[in-house]
């Protein structure tokens, strides 16, 4: 059975019908990516899965249980964590406090320390900056912190929303290396990316979203060769 199964969800912002029947599955251990242009509904899909937005129709099954009506603050307990769009780090808290917030629901001090060491191993830059106020760091460091914070809950499923946004190409490469590493250590990843090139490189499968619908679903290798995808999302004519 799939770890995450999204079945035909419809989500709204007020009167705006943002998701018009999105279905997707994520198997345990996979990296799955959602690609699509601005406003296609990628972030909305993640928000709906995470409970920040409650879909009006459809079902979301995670780890064998329906979660479409679970409030966001209970998701972390169930094993879903997110590095959200715009990073949303706590900018007036220190790096250390941000990471502590990621483990907010846990009480196992030893385990938390292990996970913190793991985050520091993945992102050595954060170790040097534990006492720094998070808002004063560079964009790349903030992105590392957002991912690190999400990892602090030891999630079964990690939702990543635009981790490459606003970063220099070198940094994008570095971040995606780490994402691959995180996946190899056993975390399932659902990745939303505008930068379809890098996303399709590390994902096993991909979904293409257009105006709130899935218009294409295929293994990443096939999507990379699809002429339509190449034209629309890979910047080739």
């Amino acid at each position: 059975m799939a770890l995450l199964e999204v079945q035909d969800i419809h989500s709204y912002y007020g009167h705006i019908h943002a998701l018009r029947g999105v279905s997707l599955t994520v198997e345990k251990g996979e990296v799955v990516t959602l690609i699509g242009s601005n406003g296609a509904g990628k972030t909305t899909t993640l928000r709906s899965i995470h409970g920040v937005l409650t879909p009006r129709e459809g079902r979301i099954v995670f780890d064998g249980e329906e979660i479409q009506n679970v409030p966001p603050h209970d998701m972390i307990e169930r094993g879903i964590a997110q590095s959200p769009e715009g990073r949303k780090i706590f900018s007036r808290m220190t790096v250390l406090e941000n990471l502590e917030m990621g483990a907010y629901h846990r009480n196992d001090g030893v385990g938390i320390q292990q996970d913190m060491d793991r985050v520091f191993d993945l992102f050595p830059r954060l170790r040097e900056r534990t006492k720094q106020e998070a808002g004063t760091m560079s964009g790349g460091e903030q992105q590392m912190l957002a991912i690190g914070r999400a990892l602090m809950s030891r999630p079964k499923l990690l939702l990543l929303d635009e981790p490459s946004m606003g970063l220099a190409p070198v940094l994008v490469e570095r971040i995606f290396q780490v994402i691959r590493e995180i996946n190899e250590q056993g975390t399932t990843i659902l990745l939303v990316e505008q930068n379809a090139n890098v996303a399709l490189e590390i994902a096993s499968r991909g979904y293409v979203l257009e105006t709130g619908r899935v218009v294409n679903a295929a293994p990443a290798a096939l999507l990379r060769q699809d002429p339509k995808v190449r034209e629309a999302y890979l910047g080739e004519v």
Partner: peptide, 24 residues
């Protein structure tokens, strides 16, 4: 305290705080 940190987190970003498992 944990509750105090939760307060500061909620004050800064309610959505992110909820994602951390904080009951806003």
């Amino acid at each position: 305290t944990k509750q105090g940190k939760a307060m500061r987190a909620v004050a800064q970003d309610k959505e992110a705080a909820a994602m951390m498992g904080i009951n806003v």
